[in-house]
Simulated scan of single mutants.
Amino acid sequence: MDAVEALAQRAQDRGARLAVAESLTCGLLASTIGKGESAQEWFAGGVVCYALDVKERVLGLEPGTDPCSPECAEQLARGVRQLIVADVAVSVTGVGGPQPSDGHPAGTVYVGWADDAGTGHRMLELDTDDPGEVLEASVDAALEVFLERLA
């Protein structure tokens, strides 16, 4: 069973409503999750917020927060969870490459989450500066976080 199938099963078994906030992945995570069986029953939706001002206005990111940081990942997850009214929300932010950005090397990624237990994050230090590889690995990590939060 692949991660999307496992997520679909787990979300349905728990009656959970999921949401995503995407910066780095630009909609790839939502697109991947949407392939899950009966996604319309458990995937509430998400927000793609690539621009910093959108993160601040729509999801409540505190101005001045580094967009490639644990704080950003957690605030985005908390903001989209509240906006969409979800049980579990996951966010993805970081540097896709091929160049570093704002002092962060390509492949630096933060996956944040928010649920009834609180907020948290996972940092990825991917050994690649290929944007496609960074995005794929980031989506995989976000799916893992969802599965862990629904365990």
Rank of each mutant, 00 (worst) to 15 (best):
1 M>F: 09
1 M>S: 12
1 M>P: 10
6 A>G: 09
8 A>R: 04
10 R>C: 05
11 A>V: 00
15 G>W: 06
16 A>T: 11
16 A>M: 12
17 R>I: 08
19 A>T: 08
27 G>F: 09
27 G>N: 08
30 A>M: 14
34 G>H: 02
34 G>F: 05
35 K>R: 15
40 Q>D: 08
41 E>W: 05
43 F>C: 03
43 F>W: 01
44 A>D: 08
45 G>H: 03
46 G>E: 00
46 G>H: 00
47 V>T: 03
48 V>D: 02
49 C>Y: 00
50 Y>I: 13
50 Y>K: 02
50 Y>F: 14
51 A>K: 10
53 D>Y: 00
57 R>P: 00
58 V>E: 00
62 E>D: 11
63 P>C: 12
66 D>R: 08
67 P>A: 13
69 S>P: 10
69 S>G: 09
72 C>G: 10
75 Q>H: 04
75 Q>Y: 03
76 L>A: 07
76 L>D: 05
83 L>A: 13
84 I>C: 07
84 I>S: 01
87 D>V: 06
95 V>W: 02
95 V>M: 04
96 G>A: 15
96 G>T: 05
96 G>W: 07
99 Q>I: 00
102 D>E: 15
107 G>N: 13
109 V>A: 03
113 W>M: 06
114 A>R: 02
116 D>C: 05
116 D>V: 09
119 T>C: 14
123 M>H: 10
125 E>H: 13
126 L>M: 11
127 D>F: 06
130 D>C: 13
132 G>H: 14
134 V>E: 11
134 V>R: 08
135 L>W: 12
135 L>A: 12
139 V>L: 13
140 D>P: 00
140 D>A: 15
146 F>C: 10
149 R>Q: 15
149 R>T: 11
